[in-house]
Design a protein around this nucleic acid. Structure first.
Lengths: 209, 209
DNA sequence: CAAAACTAATCAATCGTTTGATTAGTTTAA
DNA sequence: TTAAACTAATCAAACGATTGATTAGTTTTG
């Protein structure tokens, strides 16, 4: 059936995303991916053409759902700038922690110094996300809610950078925070609320003074 | 000459650091590294034992010089905790921006979610540096300089994470900050002072209140 | 000369990919 | 209806290329 074919491709993408996050592109062999997914090695090439094709397919799938979420956040006219900021942080932390495997992959790719077609694509997608958050900050300065001596662009780097450090360097973050940040229960009960509360406290101290 | 041997090893380390930063550990072949360095392939094993030995030698060289600076800061009994923190931030930003190739390489390896012998070694090395900074913060809380409601461990993540975001995602950071963060002149005249001033302002607002 | 430094050639292992064969299910045709 | 023709999915096996590492032999150095 058509349905089963799509499910199987999706299953391969799920597994491959995890393995790429674990080992990196070159460190993840097609044998390992197909083995983990429980499919014959040749199926990767049959479905995705090549290893790179599989890699790109992971991005296309996530990016498609990624953009839908973004549009809804910035357009909330009723709440204050601080309210918007809290909303943004909440949904951002949730989304990023839930898809941490993909974000590990993504960040490793945009940390490449050389420009490629893929890094350009990713950069554009991320910048859309950045601009939404940045607009909330500039809006807060214009209406007087936020301190106008703040370095807005650096705050963006702090929010995304702090997230990256906690989510993308799991071994260090686990030692630092005192629990396994890769454990799903810990993520839900400890990491998410702590990260949200901390970021709000940090930004409140810096922005509202 | 003994001098030449050391210089040659150092040259290989320089080249390997750059290639590892561009391609990652698995993506950088020993043939490519030796070719770029202009030495026979077997020399890598002759000097460093193995590819992993070469990789670790890069770390040992950078970490060795960095730890000397760190120890001097932590043991400075005369200055206040805030003074120590400012000192740390200044030397940390300088060091990190200057050696950005190394830090890109470091962060890419440590972002691998699966534990390996290599990630364990890197984690231990990084944690030593993390703890020095962390001790400054806990010291400041104990002597009453810093607000005791602060999330110390998250601040560590913020400092290292903000740095990573600015230094390790050059395409995004350049768009965000308005200048090419990979350009050495811009790094010296714009990026470094801005990053230092911002971090101090951010931490002061959060810690001292 | 003896030890250290260096090289070209070669090793087994693993890589991503391709192959020809087989299965199961659907469509066509008489 | 039923047998033949066709298609997509799947498989084990093998491909040539490349990997990190090692060998045996040569050159350099003190």
């Amino acid at each position: 059936m058509e349905k089963e074919k799509i499910d199987k491709k999706d299953h391969i993408l799920d597994v491959a995303e995890k393995v790429f996050a674990e080992k990196g592109f070159d460190g993840a062999s097609t044998r390992l991916i197909s083995g983990e997914a429980g499919v014959n090695m040749a199926m990767l090439n049959y479905y995705f053409g090549s290893k790179e094709g599989l890699f790109l397919a992971i991005f296309e799938r996530r990016i498609a759902s990624f953009q839908k979420i973004l549009l809804g956040i910035g357009n909330d006219e009723e709440s204050s700038s601080w309210g918007k900021l809290e909303k943004y942080l909440d949904s951002y932390v949730d989304k990023v922690v839930n898809n941490n495997c993909f974000h590990v992959m993504l960040h490793r790719e945009i940390s490449k110094t050389k420009k490629t077609e893929l890094t350009d694509k990713i950069t554009n997608i991320i910048m859309q996300n950045v601009i939404v958050f940045r607009n909330i900050l500039t809006g807060g300065i214009k209406n007087g809610e936020f301190n106008n001596t703040c370095d807005i662009d650096m705050i963006v780097a702090t929010v995304f950078g702090t997230k990256n450090y906690v989510v993308n360097t799991p071994h260090i973050a686990s030692l630092l925070l005192g629990y396994d940040v890769q454990d799903m229960t810990a993520q839900e009960e400890l990491l998410k609320p702590r990260l949200k509360a901390y970021m709000k406290g940090l930004l409140k101290a810096y922005l509202v003074n």
